[in-house]
């Protein structure tokens, strides 16, 4: 079980983004957060990694995770009226150097990238928390020129990306006992 730090409890989208002047020398690498004793223990099974795309300088050694807990619900599991799970996402990045310019902003999108929702800027500890009611989704962290909460779509490069564990679901066609069923019949190319 992975432990979240207490700073992740609650929705905290308003923490300050990283802003750095062009003339500022790169600060040292941020240390990995110290595991604190706290009450939040997200299910390890549904935790997924945020992987660097190496498209942004100084992120080559960075790692990250997204932990998921159910949104507050009187039923133990949180659902929307259509039956989608409602999750609180807890993003954290480690070993991230200051990019020198711009702001890291987190987003969540469908696998088809036809709907995008802005989670918000990562705080000084490289963390952000947001809510999603999709069953399969991608989380991306982009380097935006500024922190503009009205922006509906990212414009900067994708620095980190991750996919919900549900995204691993693949058709059984072509596999195991269904090895002779054609994947393409079920919408997969291989």
């Amino acid at each position: 079980m992975k432990r979240l730090t207490s700073s992740l409890v609650g929705i905290s989208l308003l923490a300050g983004p990283i802003r750095a002047g062009l003339s500022t020398p790169p600060p040292p690498e941020r240390p990995a957060p110290v595991a604190e004793v706290c009450s939040v223990t997200a299910p390890a099974y549904y935790t997924f990694p945020l992987v660097t795309t190496r498209t942004v300088p100084a992120t080559g050694r960075s790692t990250g995770t997204v932990e998921m807990t159910f949104a507050s619900s009187p039923y133990g599991v949180a659902l929307d009226p259509e039956g989608n799970y409602v999750y609180d996402l807890h993003l954290s990045l480690e070993r991230v150097r200051d990019p020198g310019r711009g702001v890291y902003v987190a987003w969540v999108t469908t696998p088809e990238v036809d709907e995008i929702r802005r989670i918000g800027p990562l705080d000084d500890d490289m963390r952000a928390t947001g809510r999603v009611s999709w069953n399969k989704f991608l989380v991306v962290v982009t380097l935006e020129p500024s922190d503009d909460p009205t922006t509906a779509v990212w414009s900067g490069p994708i620095a980190f990306r991750g996919m919900s564990r549900s995204g691993r679901m693949h058709t059984m066609a072509g596999h195991g006992p269904f090895e002779d069923e054609k994947c393409a019949t079920y919408g997969y190319s291989n």
């Binding site: 979240l4 939040v40 223990t41 997200a42 807990t69 159910f70 009187p74 039923y75 133990g76 599991v77």
Partner: peptide, 20 residues
């Protein structure tokens, strides 16, 4: 549930234990 405190309690005799 997963360490997140329940903010509106009720006495139960049956509760869902989700996978994971």
């Amino acid at each position: 549930v997963d360490g997140v405190p329940n903010t509106n309690l009720v006495w139960k005799d049956t509760a869902i234990i989700p996978v994971g």
